[in-house]
Design a protein around this nucleic acid. Structure first.
Length: 852
RNA sequence: GGGUGAUUAGCUCAUUUGGCUAGAGCGCGUCAUUGACGUUGACGAGGUGAGAGGUUCGAAUCCUCUAUCGCCCACCA
């Protein structure tokens, strides 16, 4: 035998992958209707996590499936420079060496990180290969490739020309540790316990004071107003008057604004426009002064000298102490409220005023919403469409600048003599340029990664300049984690509609998260992270692939289930041993004939495989992976291995064995590519060097006789009943089956004996023993009266069951509403079941009569 | 605070627009076996579908309420 007794995946997987890659099977064939998917670029600097394994698998199954169905498949891989993510990793690396970003120029940093990423990028790509990803590697795009940058600049220019780009001092989310701003979506809000203090501000125009409530007393140094609700009776008369701020003595007005909640705190709010988004909005409405008092490192500035340079924490302490000394503190209370944190380092996000680049998103969002509402993109699950529309509908202007050197530089320059004079220019490698005699200095910020990733589908397919892959845009299938719906999917739609006039993809499939085995979210800090490469080493890539899609539905988070991976491994071994058996039986075989069914089992297995293929087609076309895999699993294991191979032993046919094995391998290949290809390569009838399963054609229907197939089903039933009954009898004897005038049993007596493990199957004139009543054949098990007697209670139990079900069915048919309103087909089925059960009841009654 | 998902066998999960006796894998029990496979085979046990009510001939599925858990969003100082 060519094959070892047990399938050991790690011995075969790498060479099989190499075989595919060298054969060029991953590249688009250029023939057939295109089917394309772009891979969300995994971070170039990091190892794959288990979510990637799922993510990749969901795409690769379709890639392999549609490839076999003759489509022109492109699974286009990517690698992400992951701007900020990578930057964080690199900055830690610098820290270890005792250096900081300020020791280097932008160019130096950029090239250092480039090298850092290059060194690590290979790991990620090797891991994708280990998972079996049939990606078109020649078409891989890195997010810092020239064509990416060119396209991104083109989009930026178009937005600029359309008046949709502006630079402005706005309040932004700022991490003082990383010293960069964030988009709203990158800020993590956490509920925290803290204190809320009440501070008295003396009024100027009358004797008295107004008490404000705040969780951030230190910001009072930057207050420029106090706000109350216009209808608040307590404060109505104070509106328009002024208060004097404690500590600084500055005078600020009391204003009225509906935003103020009368119920909360004291109903009076101190306004610090530079360091609170709401206060900023209010300052815009009321044209208030904006005082910056916190700098980029989180230290106080523009404040009385003894506060100057303090960090937030120290400043708060000092301010509170001073207020206490001035007897301006009126109370403190515990409070729970949401605080924004940096999603990377967890430090508190400071809202700060900064010069940033923004996109006016509204026109883009509106255009995208129109397409979504027209149903141009199908969502799996469908509910996600609404979520995207809602999100786009309330999107605020998008801050696309980041203050980190690792990324695509923003192609803009500012007049050294006029800070409002900005021009678009792509000579970002030069610190200054001269245009028409004027010197311009470049912008040092880089783009938010999502600005470039958001253009991915049309970049990688060269859709804008009709490149060689442009037939793959829009792509057919976009599959990614449900956590990226907003930050990535929505932006791709928005930018693609804007830039290309087309939606970027036709179907979006969102997968849920992979939790740990106890359904807890995986995280490094909890130490419950499952490394996909460990799973591959232990169980094999195919087992991981099969296990991770088992019972999974879109957008639903689910625990990682080792049991399902084990089942996958066992399945691979089963398939392996089926092949081993068939290969050993068939030996050298030179052609793959059109199967010509001869026996009942032949007809039946053809029917089963035809049906399985149809079921798999239905499910995969509807993206129901788990159901498709299950149909495949049961066809191969239950129908082929458990029944057909055994039947074939009783009446062998090599042609049929070859057909059955080939079909199983094809049906299984999208789900377990390695083991199937490994087997395929060992088979003598696939010896041709160019004969690869990955490129084989998907099975089509084979003719069979329906009556013959149905007769085998009846034999199966008889065999099952025999096993069941015999298993219940005392002892482990092999029994003899007796039959009278039953042609089906007569013609298949050898087969029945083999399948039911009987001593023999013999024709008799006079029946005796235990009648096999359930399967409706004139067949008996030859057992002694004594044994028969012991079996009586079993028969009685079965009779009771049958009668219960008769009562139920009869009740249903006695109900006129059911007979009249339920579908005819269903009613007919019920009638059939009733008569079947009645016949069975009579046979059982007769059996029991004989016994007594 | 708003939205959204979940609750089905011991565990992890299915069950496509309401319709056969609610399925699978793992686990569990009994038995088997000298050559395809113990990563096996045969047989089996195990579910009043979170709870309560409603609609319907018919509900795990639709509606209402309750309970518990999760996720996302959110400026209450």
């Amino acid at each position: 035998m060519k094959l070892a007794k047990t399938y050991t995946p790690n011995d075969y997987e790498p060479s099989i992958y190499a075989l595919w890659e060298q054969s060029g099977a991953f590249a688009p064939s250029g023939q057939g209707e295109p089917f394309s998917m772009v891979m969300p670029p995994p971070n170039a600097n990091a190892n794959l996590h288990i979510g990637h394994a799922l993510d990749m698998n969901l795409k690769d199954i379709l890639a392999r499936y549609y490839r076999m169905r003759g489509r022109d498949v492109a699974l286009i891989p990517g690698a992400d420079h992951a701007g900020f993510e990578t930057w964080v990793v690199y900055e830690k690396h610098l820290q270890k060496e005792g250096k900081s970003r300020f020791d280097f120029t932008r160019e130096q940093l950029y090239s250092q990180v480039w090298k850092f990423v290059e060194d690590r990028r290979g790991d990620m790509e090797l891991q994708l290969r280990a998972l079996g990803t049939s990606a078109s590697w020649d078409d891989l795009v890195f997010t810092l490739d020239k064509k990416v940058i060119d396209t991104v600049y083109g989009t930026f220019k178009q937005l600029w020309d359309d008046g949709l780009i502006y630079r402005g001092e706005r309040i932004v989310n700022y991490c003082t540790v990383h010293q960069t701003s964030f988009a709203d979506i990158e800020v993590e809000h956490q509920t925290e316990k803290s204190k809320i203090w009440q501070i008295a501000y003396p009024t100027l125009d009358s004797i008295g004071e107004i008490v404000v409530a705040t969780t951030r007393p230190e910001t009072m140094l930057g207050d420029t107003a106090v706000a109350v609700h216009p209808d608040d009776e307590r404060y109505k008369k104070l509106i328009g008057t002024r208060v004097q701020l404690p500590l600084t003595g500055r005078e600020v007005p009391i204003i009225a604004d509906e935003y103020v909640d009368r119920e909360f705190g004291t109903g009076a709010v101190k306004i610090t426009p530079a360091h609170d988004p709401n206060d900023y909005a209010m300052a815009e409405r009321h044209d208030l002064e904006i005082r910056n008092i916190i700098d980029h490192e989180g230290k106080l500035v523009n404040v009385p000298t003894h506060y100057e340079g303090l960090d937030i924490k120290a400043a708060r302490k000092k301010v509170l102490a001073a207020l206490k000394a001035e007897e301006a503190l009126r109370g403190e209370a515990d409070i729970e409220h949401a605080v924004g944190h940096c999603y990377k380092c967890g430090s508190v996000i400071e809202p700060l005023m900064m010069q940033q680049w923004f996109i006016k998103v509204q026109p883009l969002a509106e255009a995208a919403i129109a397409r979504l509402e027209a149903g141009e993109i199908e969502f799996q699950p469908a509910s996600k469409a609404k979520e995207v529309i809602n999100y786009l509908g309330q999107l605020k202007d998008w801050n696309i600048s980041r203050q980190i050197p690792w990324g695509i530089p923003i192609p803009a320059f500012v007049n050294v003599n006029d800070p409002t004079d900005w021009i678009y220019d792509t000579r970002v490698d030069e610190a200054t340029i001269v245009v028409d005699g004027t010197t311009y200095k470049r912008e040092e910020d880089t783009f938010d990664t999502w600005f470039s990733s958001g253009q991915w589908p049309y970049i990688v397919t060269d859709a804008l300049d009709q490149g060689k892959l442009s037939r793959f845009f829009p792509s057919d299938f976009m599959e990614t984690g449900s956590d990226l719906l907003r930050q990535w999917v929505s932006r791709m739609i928005m930018l693609s509609v804007y830039r290309t006039g087309q939606v970027p993809f036709r179907t979006v499939y969102m997968h849920g998260m992979v939790n740990d085995e106890h359904n807890q979210k995986m995280s490094k800090s909890k130490g419950n992270v499952i490394n996909p490469m460990d799973v591959v080493t232990e169980y094999g890539s195919d087992a991981l692939r099969m296990g991770i899609i088992a019972g999974r539905s879109p957008a639903q988070s689910q625990a990682f289930n080792t049991g399902a991976v084990v089942a996958g491994r066992n399945f691979c071994n089963k398939l392996w041993n089926m092949a081993r058996f068939i290969e050993g039986t068939v030996g050298t075989y030179q052609h793959t004939p059109k199967p010509e069914p001869r026996t009942l089992a032949d007809h039946w297995i053809i029917r089963q495989l035809n049906r399985a293929r149809t079921t798999i087609d239905d499910h995969l076309e509807g993206y129901r992976y788990a159901e498709a895999a299950e149909a495949m699993y049961h066809a191969v294991w239950d129908d082929v291995a458990d029944w057909y191979l055994e039947a074939n032993k009783a009446d062998p046919s090599n042609d049929m064995l070859v057909y059955v094995l080939d079909t199983c391998l094809k049906l299984t290949h999208p789900f377990a590519p390695f083991v199937t290809e490994t087997i395929w390569q060992t088979l003598s009838w696939h010896e041709d060097i160019n004969d690869l399963l990955i490129s084989a054609t998907w099975p089509t229907d084979v003719d069979y006789n329906d009556i013959a197939a149905a007769e085998f089903s009846r034999l199966k039933q008889l065999v099952s009943e025999t096993r069941f009954v015999a298993g219940d009898l005392p002892g482990n004897d092999r029994y003899t089956m007796l039959y009278m005038d039953d042609t089906l049993v007569h013609d298949n007596r050898q087969l029945i004996a083999h399948l039911a493990r009987l001593k023999s199957v013999e024709k008799v004139d006079q029946a005796r023993g235990l009648r096999l009543a359930s399967s409706g054949r004139d067949a008996w098990l030859d057992i002694s009266d004594e044994t028969l007697y012991e079996h009586q209670s079993n028969l009685e139990q079965r009779l009771a069951d049958v009668r219960a079900s008769i009562t139920q069915l009869q009740g249903r048919l006695d109900n006129d509403s059911y007979v009249n309103k339920a579908p005819e087909k269903l009613v007919a089925e019920t009638r059939q079941q009733l008569s079947d059960n009645q016949a069975l009841e009579q046979r059982l009654v007769r059996e029991l009569d004989v016994l007594s």
